[in-house]
């Protein structure tokens, strides 16, 4: 159990950065050889038409991560609110470590309810990604309200908070540290432990003496051109 429970589901407020975190986590686990046998990512996002983890399907597969999403394998560019029945395979496969990437908010987390039987308390991590720079979760109270709504919709207990307060290219080490302090306030208010703070790989060295766990994330979902100033 070095890497924690075999099933990790990622939820959070719409736009908090769940997908970037989920994809980075999958690649990190693949690099570490964390999967006992197999590694899978289930993209259950039925909310967004763009920026879904299935867009990285080819790169994930190349890294040895099976990617499950809609019945078309994410290839038809549609926004059909359907999930492939094959999603059950990695959830049932005891030899497969699986990351479940949900859509935003309670409406996105609702998808988990049909898979409730695969999530027994103590045998899964249900992570809630928290970003204080999003207007909907800019106070600990609002962040907890989202967390509770996600629990209600999914029928599952959130087991950990992932701090992901960022401003894309304007993110500094200070943004990350302040974000962590915010996540600790959410922890106090909700009783759900804050586990780590995400930051872009380029900022990670500046946080090597931080008194919290830093999880460096890639920018897999964001092409570099999107941040060019014109």
């Amino acid at each position: 159990m070095q890497y924690g429970p075999r099933k990790i589901a990622v939820t959070g407020h719409f736009g908090s950065g769940k997908t970037e975190f989920a994809v980075s986590l999958a690649f990190a686990l693949a690099r570490l050889g964390a999967a006992e046998e197999r590694l899978a990512l289930c993209d259950l996002d039925i909310e967004n038409p763009y920026f879904r983890s299935r867009e990285q399907g080819a790169a994930l597969e190349e890294a040895g991560i099976r990617c499950y999403s809609d019945p078309f394998g994410g290839r038809n560019g549609s926004e059909l609110q359907t999930i492939s029945a094959a999603v059950r395979a990695p959830l049932e496969d005891e030899g497969c470590r699986v990351i479940v990437d949900c859509g935003g908010d309670n409406s996105g987390a609702m998808v988990l309810r049909q898979f409730q039987k695969y999530f027994t308390l103590g045998e899964y991590q249900l992570l809630c990604v928290v970003n204080q720079n999003r207007p909907g979760t800019d106070t600990p109270e609002k962040a907890v309200a989202h967390l509770r709504a996600i629990e209600q919709a999914s029928g599952l207990e959130v087991t950990g908070l992932v701090s992901n307060s960022h401003l894309i290219r304007y993110t500094t080490a200070e943004t990350v540290t302040e974000g962590w302090e915010f996540a600790k306030q959410v922890e106090t208010l909700s009783g759900v432990p804050a586990l780590c703070a995400c930051c872009m790989e380029s900022i990670a060295p500046q946080l090597k003496n931080a008194d919290f766990d830093v999880f460096p994330i890639g920018m897999y979902m964001r092409d570099t051109y999107l941040d060019k100033q014109v």
């Binding site: 999003r134 207007p135 800019d138 304007y170």
Partner: peptide, 10 residues
């Protein structure tokens, strides 16, 4: 200060 927003929301 800046806030992080999805285009359509903004």
């Amino acid at each position: 200060s800046k806030v992080l927003m999805k285009g359509n929301e903004a």
